[in-house]
Design a protein around this nucleic acid. Structure first.
Lengths: 138, 138
DNA sequence: TATTGTTATACTCTATAACTATA
DNA sequence: TATAGTTATAGAGTATAACAATA
């Protein structure tokens, strides 16, 4: 059992390694860093405050300030005053930003490619395993 | 089917995100950056040349130079002349480095923790799926 | 001449501490 | 006074270009 976990641990490492590398490559293909692509993705769903971005990206607020400033200077997002709280700011994606986010999703072929190698049953099994490991059932 | 892949893609994203965050946290716990921990892990197996490290870490050689220099200044690795080729250098782990690498493995509890949530059958299924997605059979 | 590694440089990511403005 | 965000600063990761030493 320990050996099974050990070997699985190595496979998991290799897979995450390949996943991260592919994400980084895709981001650079569209002219972004991985961190920028990540933030753009978060903002693409809906406007998000700076603080919320820091929470979701698991980093310091001062870091978010800089990444947003860079994306803003590229015209991909803009800051707007927070809805209720005069202190807060929301980051909103621009049309150009939405286009680039979509290009990024297209460029990041890794997940679809790899999942496409699995049988339907294997996909089901993988989905169940990920649910459990993410604490989403059981 | 497309929806299945889409949902699975999100689960995969979430899992990789959690994995990366956990690795980063573990590295910081032992006083390393993720990149430093990664290089130390590579060198822990056996001496590796600078160029080989660049290949394995998927980065430029000049980057490896800097990371190795930092690890060397912490006394965790050392450079030694290459075996056959007088131009090359091998990076060798020191006793202190080996201790820290082991501490890192202990600190990085994420894989074992999460795999421990799975049944034996689910682990088998996950292992098979990863093999296929990593192109290691079929 | 080609290759291994380093140096110089520049940009990005990241965090800490001090600060401004608002609550 | 507490909170949201920014600024200043510093260390680390990263790549490109120019370079040294060796093959």
């Amino acid at each position: 059992m320990v050996d099974q976990v050990g070997s699985l641990g190595q496979q998991m490492w290799d897979f995450v390694y390949a996943y991260d590398a592919a994400y980084d490559r895709a981001a650079r293909e569209v002219g972004l860093s991985a961190a920028q692509a990540c933030l753009l993705k978060a903002v693409a769903e809906r406007p998000v405050t700076m603080g919320e971005l820091a929470s979701r990206l698991l980093c310091d607020a001062s870091n978010v300030t800089q990444i947003v400033t860079r994306l803003e200077s590229k015209g991909l997002v803009r800051r707007q005053p927070g809805a209720r709280d005069g202190r807060s700011k929301e980051v909103v994606i621009t049309p150009d930003g939405a286009v680039l986010d979509e290009r990024m999703r297209v460029a990041f072929t890794f997940p679809v490619e790899r999942l496409g190698l699995l049988s339907s049953d294997a996909r089901d099994a993988l989905g169940s395993a990920l649910d459990v490991m993410l604490g989403r059932d059981g």
